[in-house]
Amino acid sequence: MKVNLEKIKPDKKEVLRNLYSLYLHDLSAYTEGLQINDSGSYEFDSFSLIWEKEGITPSFIKVDEKLAGFVLILEAPFTTKVDKVINDFFILNPFRGKGVAKAAVAEIFSQNKGSYYISELVQNKTAVHFWKKIYQQHGIGFEEHTEVQDGEEVVYQTFVVS
């Protein structure tokens, strides 16, 4: 199984928009803040910024050239206290539980050294557990805090990948 990241070009933004709807649907299980729109999908309200602003890198996660998910990484000017923010990370259901997410994170870390910030909804215990397991497997020390962001209780970790 070969897992790799592929930067998303503007001509593939509709594919990313479709993946975002699936991702937000999954997140809706943990928050009342996400609602389906009149056309039957979930929308990322800042989606257009992905290609309009510097400091946003969307990448497809691929397994043997098949689309398996996506990651959205933010850098300056969107972040000032750390180098990178993994803003969104999503693996499609058929690829879950097979080591794809773990391999994708290893690829992210190998391509992006520096300080990081990652947050998860407190209620999304699967995501919180996943990231703590990743830190342990990579021997990464991290600081963790809980706060309210946009009306949602989140837990977040900061750490350094060298």
Rank of each mutant, 00 (worst) to 15 (best):
V3T: 12
N4M: 13
L5S: 07
E6F: 00
K7V: 15
I8S: 07
K9A: 14
K12D: 14
L16F: 09
L19Y: 04
L22Y: 06
H25S: 14
D26A: 13
Y30H: 11
L34P: 05
L34S: 04
Q35L: 13
I36Y: 09
N37Y: 02
S39H: 11
Y42S: 12
Y42A: 04
Y42G: 04
Y42L: 04
S46V: 12
L49T: 10
E52D: 14
K53T: 08
F60N: 13
I61E: 11
K62A: 05
D64G: 05
D64V: 06
G69N: 12
L72G: 05
E75Y: 04
E75P: 01
E75W: 06
P77H: 11
T79A: 03
V85M: 05
I86V: 15
I86Y: 08
F89S: 09
F89L: 15
F89W: 03
I91G: 00
P94L: 01
G99T: 10
K102A: 12
A104L: 07
A106V: 03
E107C: 02
F109S: 01
F109W: 06
S110C: 04
Q111E: 15
S115M: 01
S115E: 08
L121V: 14
T126M: 11
W131Q: 00
F142T: 08
F142M: 07
E143P: 01
E144W: 02
G151I: 03
V154C: 01
T158Q: 09
V160Q: 12
